[in-house]
Nucleic acid binder design. Structure first.
Length: 453
RNA sequence: GUGGGCGUAGCUCAGCUGGUAGAGCGCCGCGUUGUGGUCGCGGAUGUCGCGGGUUCAAGUCCCGUCGCUCACCCCA
């Protein structure tokens, strides 16, 4: 069979890269659980009607159907199954389905693959892993949860083997109120307010002049466009946010509410290590997804801004609704694949070795393989990952076997029942006992290394 | 979905106005008769993405196709 070519957008990692990814997943799980999030896994598919509920028909959704469809079974109907394209919509469905069994406010984390049929590029994949945290309540959801999401994800980001990040926070109520104060009107999504938000969201890409052009096209007056652009250019911390916005001289009830909420988020994250996770109010951030209502988050890695946001989310006051109750939520989602594959590709992060093995037990000849098995078992019993050499080749080859895969130690057993272990990096070889020998702690497991740092 | 670039050895790539395929690294062997790495010597490896066309002759030119990749759009 001819060698298959890679499938664009469906990345597969080599063992050493996968080790880095697994480390990331381990850290995320640990941090999320420390903050009391329960884990769930939802099925990979949802009825198309659930995924498209928000009217986002343009989503590149993968539909799943049997190769041999039943007679009368047509594709394109709302009953078709489709692969989920995020974890938030399936979570909303899960909440309404299981509301009777859940305690609210419900905190959950979810780390799964998602699928989007978009054109792949660096940092953009068709199959990728997201790590989501969300809090959902019944009726109303207190605002302090908005800050909590930023703090939990910030703590996780600070502990991951990533460059420092900037967590950009904004509030849609603030922005909408500001625009209404400028005299803009209409529906948030379809009217000039929505158009203005989408234009302003491109500030970092097309610049102030580009945004001004877009705003003119959207029919804003010069004064309105100037005001919207001035707001979008605000970058502030907890100390100067209110003054920066007030200085623009616009007032509206919604603006006041949003400003208060945004300030609450900024002041609640002051315990994050600023060198790893800087949290700033960035009033140009709008987010495309239409169901966000208040706080919105985006995250960029310093030095890797071209990847776009690696971690985004926000508040949705009515994402889930079972007809009797409404379930507001707030959450944030880390694009694990987007964050780490580019780093791996450019060598900015790697594993110390590609296998978990610490010791290769040499086999003198096949008649002594069982002896080697017993040595390996004794080592494993104390948590030392050991594998027995696959061949009884010359010792030089067995050492080379270990060296090639970065295994630091090779074990030799003598005919007289004594044992020696060799550190193949230094060449040092010493007497050792299978029942008690341990490697240095730093060698026990593969580690993640940052060559730059 | 729209537009650009690129497909040659395991990897990175060279290959001119057409003349029957190369380098570096890696791999294998020997020097080194059961302790690797360095060094030296030797060796193996290609449907030149695929299909068709032009030609005495195609990796090279033409057409088509598939794949990868970059940008736009959008997003993690």
């Amino acid at each position: 069979m001819a060698r298959p070519t890679p499938l664009s957008g469906f990345p597969e990692l080599l063992p050493s890269a996968r080790l880095v990814e697994q480390h990331v997943l381990d850290v995320l799980r640990e941090v999320f659980e420390l903050h009391g999030f329960s884990n769930i896994e939802t099925r990979a598919v949802e009825p198309l009607s659930v995924l498209l509920r928000k009217g986002e028909i343009d989503k590149e959704v993968y539909v799943v159907r049997r190769l041999q469809a039943e007679a009368g079974e047509e594709s394109g109907s709302s009953d078709d199954l489709a692969l989920h394209f995020d974890l938030t919509v399936p979570f909303a469905r899960y909440v309404t389905e299981n509301a009777g069994h859940l305690q609210f406010p419900f905190r959950r984390y979810q780390i799964q693959k998602v699928w989007r049929g978009e054109r792949p590029q660096e940092g953009r994949y068709r199959e990728f892993t997201q790590a989501d945290i969300d809090v959902v309540d019944r009726g109303t959801l207190a605002v302090h949860h908005d800050a909590d999401m930023a703090r939990v994800m910030g703590e996780a980001l600070a502990r991951l083997p990533l460059p420092g990040v900037t967590l950009q926070v904004n509030n849609r109520r603030l922005v909408e109120g500001f625009y209404r104060g400028l005299g803009l009107e209409g529906d948030v999504l379809t009217g000039s307010i929505g158009a203005t938000m989408r234009a302003v969201d491109k500030l970092d890409k097309v610049g102030a002049r580009g945004v001004a052009d877009l705003l003119a096209q959207a029919g804003l007056t010069q004064a309105q466009a100037d005001g919207a652009l001035a707001l979008a250019q605000v970058r502030a911390g907890a100390g100067d946010l209110v003054a920066s916005v007030r200085a623009l001289g616009v007032s509206h009830e919604l603006l006041d509410q949003g400003l208060e909420e945004l300030l609450a988020v900024l002041t609640a994250v002051d315990d994050l290590p600023a060198d790893r996770v800087a949290v700033v109010a960035d009033l140009s951030v709008a987010r495309g997804l239409d169901y966000y209502t208040g706080t919105v988050y985006e995250t960029r890695m310093r030095g890797w801004e071209s990847l776009g946001s690696i971690c985004s989310g926000g508040r949705y006051d009515a994402l889930a609704d079972d007809g009797r109750d409404v379930y507001p939520g707030v959450g944030i989602s880390l694009g694990v694949t987007r964050a780490i594959i580019p780093l791996l590709g450019k060598g900015a992060v790697r594993a110390s070795r590609p296998t978990p093995t610490v010791v290769v037990v040499a086999v003198a000849d096949e008649a002594h393989r069982r002896d080697a098995d017993r040595v390996a078992s004794a080592l494993r019993a104390r948590g030392v990952a050991a594998e027995v050499s696959p061949t009884a080749a010359k010792f030089g080859k067995q050492i080379r076997f270990a060296d090639r895969r970065g295994v630091p130690f090779v074990w030799f057993s003598q005919e007289d029942g004594s044992h020696e272990v060799k550190d193949i990096r230094s060449g040092e070889q010493v007497l050792a006992d299978p029942a008690s020998w341990l490697p240095p702690a730093a060698d026990l497991r593969p580690t993640v290394v940052l060559p730059e740092a």
